[in-house]
Each structure stands twice: as C-alpha cells, then as structure tokens.
Design a binder for these strands. Sequence first.
DNA 1: TAGCGCTGAGAACGGTCGTTCTCTAGTCTA
DNA 2: TAGACTAGAGAACGACCGTTCTCAGCGCTA
Lengths: 172, 172
Amino acid sequence: MVQETAVLDAAEHLFYDRGIQAVGMDEIRTTSGVSLKRLYQLFPSKEALVVRYLERRDKRWRDSLMAYVLREGGEVGAVFDWLYQWFSEPGYRGCAFINSFGELGATSPAVTAVVRHHKDELWGHLRELVDDDAKADRLLLLVEGAIVVAAIRQDPDVVRQAKAAAEALVSG
Amino acid sequence: MVQETAVLDAAEHLFYDRGIQAVGMDEIRTTSGVSLKRLYQLFPSKEALVVRYLERRDKRWRDSLMAYVLREGGEVGAVFDWLYQWFSEPGYRGCAFINSFGELGATSPAVTAVVRHHKDELWGHLRELVDDDAKADRLLLLVEGAIVVAAIRQDPDVVRQAKAAAEALVSG
DNA sequence: TAGCGCTGAGAACGGTCGTTCTCTAGTCTA
DNA sequence: TAGACTAGAGAACGACCGTTCTCAGCGCTA
C-alpha cells in the first residue's frame, strides 16, 4: 500500500511534468524506490499504471476544487479563484487529462475513457452551480479554455477574463 | 519540393491522427514514398520535421478560418460556424498545437514556441473582430474550450453554446 | 542448523526508435 | 567507353523501450 502510493506519486510527478511516453518504467522505479518486479506486481502494465494515475488525480483534483468552492459559498466565481491558484503553482503544465488524451487518446481506449469520465464529472459539478444545462456547458468551455490558455501562455491572468465572463453568463 | 510536400502531408496525417511519438520516421518514409536518406536531407531531424509540420498547419488553419470569417461578413459567430464544420470532419482529434504542446512542450522549446505563436496569432485575428482586448481574451477562451470539449466528447454540438456565449459577450 | 520461499537488484530480452552507412545502379561528362 | 558523381533502398547502429528472468540473500519453520 505504501509502495503503491510511492509508485503513483513518482508516476504522477514524472508523467505530468514531462509527458507519459517521455518517462520510462526504469525512471519510475528509480524515483519511487520500488523494484521493477514489485512494480509489475502492483500494476500489470504501464498502461494500467497510467490509468490508475489518472483515476487518482481525477478524484483528488475534483475533491479539491469542490471543497474549495463549497467553502467559499458555492458561487461560480470560486471555481476560477481555485483555478488561479492552480495555474500559479510552479510547474503548472495544463490539464493532465487533456495532455494524456492528446498523447494517447488515439491508441488507448482506456485512457480515453478516464479522460471522458473526468470531464463528465466536472460538468456535473458545474451543473450544480447553475440553473440549466446550457450554462453548465458554457461554464465548462470557459474552464477548459482557461486551463489551456494559461498553460500555453505560462500566465494565469486569463483566468480573470474567464471569471468575469462566467459571472456575466450566470447572472444573465 | 514535391517530395517535401509529400513528406509533410504524410507527417501531418500520421502525427495528427496518432500523436507524434507514436509515429516513427520509418512510417513517414513508407507513407510518403521518400527514402530515409532524402528525408533527412530535407529535414535534419524529427524535431525539425515536427516544427515544419506545425508551421505549415498553423498557416493553413488560420488562413482557412479567416477567409471563411471574412467571406461570411466578419461577424464573430462565423468563427464558430467554421469550428463546427471542422469538429464534424471524420478523424477530428482536437487541436494539433494543444496536443503537441501536451506531448512535447516540456522537452522541446522549439515546439513550445510554434504553439505559442499559433495561439498568439489566433488571438490577434479574434482581436480584429471585437472592440477591446478583454473581449478577444474571452473569445479565445470559448474557442479553445470548444476545441477541447468537442474532441473529448467526440461531439461538435458544444459549439452552439460557445457561439451563443460569444454573441452574448460581444453585444454586451 | 537445514531447507524453503520470498524479495530485490539489475541483467537480459526482443522490439523499436532516430539516425547513419553501405552498396548498388544509373547518369552525365570527356 | 571510362570514370566520377548522384540517389535510392534498406541494412546497420547504438540507445532505449516495456517486460521478464536470474540469482544471491534474507527471514521463516521444523
């Protein structure tokens, strides 16, 4: 269990920072300190490890976002305040799910499924903050747009426009 | 010249469909019909080929978008009509630049630079359609969001909400 | 203490990657 | 015709990939 966590921590760090195909199992072994044999007992293949990495990140990411939003009173604007903090973290490199989808979506149905699930769940959370499906769609567009633009510009400030646009559409 | 085009056509097709690291130079050789030796005379490395592929796609993509928008009268909504057509093409797999950035951005400054340039230029085009920078930012967020969500959902219909939101923010 | 099973480190395996080299065949000049 | 140059096909190279295997060393039980 502690080893599984060590492997997932190492995998998440390396995969997110450098991309999945750029990281070999050997490097995960070295970083986690878990032997290759044990690593393959815990995860039968690299793809399985990737899927578990994404699943764990999905849960943690959504839990963190929604806990923050509730703590702040459940207003839509809080979503973007949370995003701003995330974008400002050193090493921010966009959304792990979008990145994984771009890299492996064409060849790995398992990865595609996790990514799709993550975005569906995110939509569901946003849906709870507004009063119809269309607004949830528009909110999702602003969130995804902000994630992508902040990553490519290496600048979290777009989130201000995203937040302002979101508040306008909610009140409208 | 005709060979260069053959190589770039093959590379673009393969890279976009399956991801860059998933495609080897051998497959580009086979698909293009250009020998490996000549291929390396035309492009000194795979990274150089990737950069050329992105540069060519950047120009073609933006030219196509802006020509369409102008033809339709230069209204913001036309951007999203063009996007809808693009999303509906078979084999649509999101934005080549976002995907390349996620896959190689961490390891290739050259790729990062082309991606950033592409998005900057896109922002510039959008800026011409509205009357201030903030609206161009918000438009870009909706465009990027639509590109990502349509790809992951495999459904072009989000573009309707993107278009409606864009028209609301422009008139507001 | 003798023998057994489990563990870990890392060597080894087959395959593929990006890149370079070899070698053959053809074309042009003198 | 002889010889120098080019270009093509694809073998070869070294590195590294994901995955499996070997084997020495450890803690158990009797």
